[in-house]
Design a protein around this nucleic acid. Structure first.
Length: 828
RNA sequence: GCCGGAGUGGCGGAAUUGGUAGACGCGCACGACUCAAAAUCGUGUGCCGCAAGGCGUUGAGGGUUCGAUUCCCUCCUCCGGCACCA
């Protein structure tokens, strides 16, 4: 015990010694001068025992009561496990353990989302092959993850960058291709000049690259898409029954962006072609005083007369140069150019000018609009700027001053006049259908998923082209369609796979001279859209998943991960699951029945980042306090879904709690019979911890255990029975320590295999309770009464209280309220 | 602009259906142990008061109620998401 002091003096004198301990990995025990408790030793011991007994390996076939506990699998970065991983995984593990103690057959797998840009960028810098760095990162992370002591079933591990895995990514592509859900199309797409690749819409939100923040530009490229839009309605309706955060559902709903309205066709003066528009306000057709085409609209070239072509062409070129961000900047002044062509308003028969303007998007609706400046803010601003007529067709506003976008009675609209907006819409649609000039229509903002990437480190798209350039699927027997090795990693905007001689030779050898492979790889979100099925596959080479096991284990019982995937991974995975169900490979439509997002851990009030220098490294804290204490502190900081700000000192509170608990269970367990107060508190604690962990309120569950410990210490000891109950309650939160204490207390088997303790409601209540006595809403005293005392007795006793009596003297009592076990309120 | 969520001590946070606001923890102060420090333990920690007790209080203002952090209205601030979607 003096050893520590002597060592300290010898090495350092009085200066900061904690750094020294961390550096030399001297067990914390010496500092704490409690040689019996050493988290490092205890945690090693139990991790080995769990592994030897293989108690976390789930038997997927035999399990009777399956509980699929899933966390979003990590990217194996060279930066190793960070606090964010811990904050996601550790509470998820506590919840899974809690379910196991409730008799569930829990399966908690872990794997790696291993394809992607960072490994490739690292390869560009270092020359190390992404496969080499990825494998080494995976190894390191597995070690760190094991040290967390979570109940992962490592026998089910997946790594998306291995051929065994990506053959299924490619297989999925082929399934989509076969059913025409995968198609190639030339379209304006988001391109990140820094990553040198195209991006899906979901990855270019705000006009910036999701990965590097660079402003994306628009390019016309021929790319592979998956037809997620076919599933828009199902993706929307399916949300109804999911046990997900409401916020996430709203985000997905907005992202899908359903809107109902009509499609209206306008004739063009002097041309056979017509312009079709989509509008949610067909009732305002009489007010359409001009039309606007998106600059990229294919009709622009056909209808623009020579006299206007120069200006129109110049405008289009100008728009092309703008980034997505510039183009969608709301603050900017509207621009546009008349095409010189005219259309006919089908309702009024009037000729109205056709403009082009970049406030109309080519990618939404039909890429063309009818402009109703009186009743649409954007059209109003445009009309004001270019002096176009504004015609009121809905009463209720002052359309000279501002657009009136609310509903109201129709005016200046012949057969619609007087109708309220909803009726006018219906009437107009009926009229358009009769006249053959339009129909009811629903549109979605969701766009097809662009899955091509011009990058190396991904699953190759299993397509080859014949000498005429026609695409053909790579037959399934050639899967995995291997990612070639002989490439440079420098991004050029062209796919790195183009450099591979082996890749081209292989293609010609199998398919014939002049055949070429598809050089693009797939978006990594494809890999992660079905990984939850591969965990269940157990390395099955024949099928993506065994249908019997899928039927039994899907959907995922509890899925935990960050909220940033609301409109990416979480929408893609739903789409893929629905598609696989339609193809007949799975039985469920939705992959994730219940979803919870963990909050964000900040440090010194800011998001952790290397550039800010505020990154908290879990390793040094785990070295010092142990994994149990580290994870419990993360859970104690605040509500799981809120996250919190990391505080180096806060963890000491948990460390003290754990040491005191250890001391109690090893030194102060006695034969004495628990007093009623202790019994009631134990039962209340069981009740509270059960509810709190069930609701993922880990912070209050831990504080309840602290309160119990405080009481037991005051009592000077604990019965073995109560100690055991307490250790069982602790088991999901501190898995190693609780195993150790369970053993110390003579418990049989692993603590995690015990049943969760039960409580009796009747025993949670004590016979005597303290009541507050209020006079006119202010607390004037307290009395102790029997919990089931009669109202009259309590009131009489309350009035005897000297201080209460003082406030009642000379007053007339108006009202007396008695809330059993809570308070007495007297109004005078 | 639209859609969500949140504002409670020095700090993180807690408060079943409206029922003693500030549990639990951190920090801080004083005390015990020590030559000393760390660790540990004890006491205190909204304000006034030696105390009994009194007063105040959950972003601001108003309302309902015996009683409001909780319900209703107005406003302010912060955070997250979407944003020329016709």
């Amino acid at each position: 015990m003096q050893y520590a002091g002597a060592l300290e003096k010898r090495l350092l004198g009085k200066t900061e010694v904690s750094a020294l301990y961390t550096e030399y990995r001297i067990p914390y025990t010496f500092r704490a001068m409690e040689p019996s408790f050493n988290p490092t030793i205890i945690e090693d011991k139990w991790q080995k025992k769990w592994e030897e007994a293989r108690i976390y390996e789930a038997d997927l076939k035999k399990a009777k009561n399956p509980f699929y506990a899933l966390v979003m699998f990590p990217y194996p970065s060279g930066d190793k496990l960070h606090v964010g991983h811990w904050y996601n995984f550790a509470p998820a593990d506590s919840y899974a353990r809690f379910m196991r103690m409730h008799g569930k057959d829990v399966m908690a797998p872990m794997g790696f989302d291993a394809f992607g840009l960072p490994a490739e960028n690292y390869a560009i810098k270092s020359g190390i092959h992404p496969d080499t760095s990825t494998r080494s990162n995976v190894q390191t992370m597995v070690k760190q993850l094991r040290r967390m002591g979570c109940m992962y079933d490592w026998s089910k591990m997946v790594n998306t960058s291995t051929p065994e895995y990506y053959r299924w990514t490619q297989w999925l592509f082929l399934q989509m291709y076969e059913r025409t859900l995968a198609y190639k199309k030339e379209a304006p797409v988001n391109f990140c000049p820094s990553c040198q690749t195209v991006l899906a819409n979901e990855q270019a939100q705000d006009g910036k690259c999701e990965r590097c923040g660079t402003e994306v530009i628009q390019k016309n490229l021929s790319q592979w898409f998956w037809k997620i839009t076919d599933y828009a309605e199902r993706l929307l309706n399916g949300l109804e029954d999911l046990d997900w955060p409401e916020k996430t559902k709203i985000m997905q709903r907005n992202w899908i962006g359903k809107s109902e309205g009509a499609e209206i066709t306008f004739d063009i003066v002097g041309h056979d072609e017509r312009i079709t528009v989509f509008t949610t306000r067909p009732d305002t057709l009489f007010g359409a005083t001009y039309m606007v085409l998106a600059p990229e609209h294919p009709l622009v070239e056909k209808i623009t007369p020579k006299s206007h072509w120069g200006a129109v062409h110049a405008y289009r070129e100008g728009v092309k140069k703008k980034t997505e961000l510039e183009r969608t900047d709301l603050a900017k002044v509207k621009t546009g150019e008349p095409t010189g062509a005219f259309a006919v308003n089908p309702a009024t028969g009037e000729e109205i000018p056709i403009w082009i303007a970049d406030y109309v998007l080519s990618t939404y609706g039909t890429g063309a609009i009818m402009a109703v400046p009186a009743h649409d803010e954007r059209d109003f601003a445009f009309a004001k700027k270019f002096n176009l007529p504004i015609k009121e067709v809905v009463a209720g506003g002052n359309v000279e001053e501002a657009a009136f976008c609310d509903e109201g009675p129709a005016v200046n609209s012949e057969f619609l006049n007087g109708l309220k907006t909803s009726d006018a819409k219906k009437r107009m649609i009926a009229w358009l259908e009769d006249a053959g000039k339009g129909r009811e229509r629903t549109t979605y903002r969701l766009r097809d998923w662009l899955v091509s990437r011009q990058r190396y480190w991904g699953a190759p798209i299993p397509i080859v082209y014949d000498p005429e350039g026609k695409p053909h699927p790579v037959p399934e027997k050639h899967l995995p369609w291997l990612l070639p090795d002989d490439v440079e990693f420098k991004p050029t905007g062209k796919s790195p796979l183009m450099e591979s001689k082996e890749f081209i030779r292989r293609t010609e050898k199998i398919f014939g001279k002049g055949w070429t492979p598809e050089f693009d790889t797939m978006d990594t979100f494809v890999c992660s859209s079905f990984y939850y099925l591969r965990y269940l596959a157990g390395g099955d080479e024949k099928r993506i998943v065994d249908p019997t096991i899928e039927r039994k284990w899907m959907p995922v019982s509890m899925y935990i991960g960050g909220p940033e995937h609301a409109c990416m991974h979480l929408i893609y995975a739903r789409f893929v699951m629905m598609a696989l169900k339609d193809f007949g490979f799975v039985s469920h439509e939705e992959p994730f029945k219940k979803l919870v997002h963990q909050g964000l851990i900040t440090h010194k009030g800011a998001k952790m980042s290397k550039s800010k220098g505020n990154v908290v490294s879990p390793d040094s804290f785990v070295d010092r306090y142990g994994s149990d204490v580290f994870r419990m502190y993360l859970m104690f900081m605040g509500p799981f879904t809120d996250g919190g700000d990391w505080n180096d000192l806060g963890i000491k509170g948990i460390d003290r709690f754990v040491r005191r608990l250890y001391a109690l269970c090893t030194e102060s367990v006695n034969k004495k019979v628990d007093q009623q107060k202790v019994i009631a508190t134990v039962h209340r604690t069981v009740k509270k911890v059960t509810r709190d962990i069930g609701e993922m309120h880990f912070n209050t569950a831990i504080s309840a255990l602290m309160e119990l410990l405080n009481l037991l210490e005051e009592e000077g000891g604990v019965s073995k029975e109560s100690a055991k109950t307490m250790v069982l309650l602790l088991a999901p939160l501190a898995p190693h320590l609780s195993e150790e204490l369970w053993e110390v207390l003579g418990g049989k088997g692993f603590v995690i295999e015990q049943h969760w303790p039960l409580f009796e409601e009747a025993l949670t209540k004590e016979s005597m309770v303290v009541l507050a006595i209020q006079v006119n809403g202010k607390v004037r005293g307290e009395i102790e009464v029997e919990a089931n005392a009669a109202k009259d007795d309590v009131l009489a006793k309350a009035k005897e209280h000297p201080n209460v009596h003082k406030f009642l003297e000379g007053m007339v009592i108006k009202k007396e309220i008695y809330v059993p076990c809570k308070l007495v309120s007297i109004v005078v």
